[in-house]
Amino acid sequence: MDMEKRIEALENQMSQLQDTLVKIEKNADEQKLAMIVFSGDLDKALAAFIIATGAVAMGMEVVMFFTFWGTPLLRKKDGDTTGQKDMFGKMFGAMLPKGASKATLSKMNMGGAGTQMMKTLMKKKNVASLDEMIQLAAELEVKIYICEMSMDLMGFSRSEMIDYPDLGYAGVATFLSEAGTSRVQLFI
């Protein structure tokens, strides 16, 4: 009788342990990188994509969230900027860069001359361009989310964003949910 009670107690403990283990496993950090790309500067965006593609090489899953000034980096070169837009939308559409190839350096831009010089130098040194890095990220299955609020604020339509295989539109909850299970989180 005594033995039976002890076994029963052990069995209870065991099932409690199993439940705890399941919970721990569910909340464990994954080999994942969650990154916010806030900046639309060429240099910072390049750094973001170098880290993202490098992380995939390290065996990590990568999720990037583009918000505010980072959003126009993902516009098409020749996307429509006029149709159906209000005055502010048209203004943002005209003033913000149309895509990654139009991004400029955060320092030493010198009216575009500095950016041009950097691009020439990058080609010479065989450093991939931002467009090429986005292409590579797509091949490596980096997931990209665009901040819905930024899109709305700047008056961008989904049709003027690039064709990227794993592109989604989301808000802060999606980022936080991804970041919550990521070992590495970055804000660029």
Binding site: I51, T53, G54, A57, A128
Partner: peptide
């Protein structure tokens, strides 16, 4: 050779 960061590790991991 000639490839710069992060291409070497990207290529090798592939």
């Amino acid at each position: 050779t000639g490839l710069s960061c992060p291409m070497p590790i990207v290529k090798v991991s592939k």
